[in-house]
Design a protein around this nucleic acid. Structure first.
Lengths: 205, 205
DNA sequence: TAGATTGTTAATCGATTAACAATC
DNA sequence: TAGATTGTTAATCGATTAACAATC
């Protein structure tokens, strides 16, 4: 188990492997780097190299046990327990995330949702009640929540980010269409449909 | 204008630059690779190198005109005109995307939305009426739509993808939590919140 | 002019691929 | 045993950075 400074680009592929393996698990017990590669569109050599950073999880001649590899990946990614996540911003996207069924079996649980809009505070979204953003820092800190999804307008994203950092959040999934600045012990991932679409139009026509 | 085979990783950064520049435009006329780099968290050298792939858009001593650079980036990314996009899947995410206000001034317009569920077909989402997915290939082909956002369950994502390809779609933004396979003249981008969160948990604790 | 910043080169750094011995 | 597939090495390929002449 060689954990010394794995490149981030490898870490980024592990969830892709895991997702594919979980779908493949329904159909069989074993797989190979070749087969997994066909599912995810990555070369077999790279998959073997990536996985081998963390241990010898396969067997020559027979490949990988899907169940075993899933367990190992979940362990490596630290999603063998459930992470609580806060949502900031109860607009359409915040609502969709609060109701999203895809989190629980993948390591996450939405724990609370905040908005600044007084007319929304108190409103129910499924099991959740929208809470007042002015209580956010206190609430997140008390619950020791380390992850948040930001679904506020670009204009307030930095301000919200600063508060999350202050509350002890270490990983932010930012849906606001803007870059945000964080201390370097905090991770950020971006989801912005327009940016993703713009990345493809270059190749069209 | 040196358009011969620009690395995709550079193309991927251009929308990030553009997004930052559009926010910076509200505050001033000029910028530098240094300043832009601070906004987006990328080194000044890399920004200059990326931009210089497409022409000499800056001036020594004074930097870049924000307006001019925005125009150039929009042109390079081919978003100086509006792209029509189809949505497949009228669940929570499909609804949120249909109502999303962030597309129009960034080069995109939602044109139609489909679902297989007969009880949803005919339902209104703002200006849109949910259409029957059985008419999808025909409708998309007739409208010459080249981009689509897929917000169906993982189990039907490949099937939907095959139909979109058949309809002439060349770029897919996939919200379904699964890899999809497409011919190599079709581009895919993935948005999966659980995958994005899993990419950060490795670094926590 | 003096200061600032580009565009570009060369050097460095990092990631991917191909190949194959080991071995199940 | 024969066939298959891993883990790993070395070679290749590609991306980033540092530095600086050119010039606004």
């Amino acid at each position: 188990m060689n954990s010394d400074n794995i490149p981030d680009i490898i870490i980024g592929r592990l969830p892709i492997y895991l997702r594919a393996l979980q779908r493949m698990a329904e159909k069989g017990m074993k797989t190979s780097s070749q087969e997994l590669g066909e599912h995810v569109g990555i070369s077999a050599a790279q998959i073997r190299k990536d996985i081998s950073q963390f241990g010898e999880f396969g067997k020559q001649g027979t490949g990988y046990s899907i169940g075993f590899l899933i367990d190992k990946l979940r362990e490596i990614l630290k999603i063998h327990h459930l992470w609580e996540v806060a949502i900031v911003g109860a607009g359409d996207i915040g609502h969709a995330l609060a109701r999203y069924q895809g989190f629980t079996n993948r390591g996450f649980r939405v724990a609370m949702i905040f908005d600044t809009d007084a007319s929304k505070v108190g409103e129910k979204i499924g099991e959740f009640t929208i809470e007042d953003a002015s209580k956010m820092v206190e609430r997140i800190r008390a619950a020791k929540i380390k992850m948040a999804m930001v679904t506020v307008p670009a204009s307030t994203a930095q301000e919200v980010t600063d508060k999350l950092v202050q509350a002890g959040v270490k990983a932010i999934l930012n849906y606001a269409p803007t870059s945000i600045n964080v201390p370097n012990n905090v991770r950020v991932q971006y989801i912005d449909p327009a940016t993703h679409l713009q990345r493809m139009t270059y190749y069209l026509e």
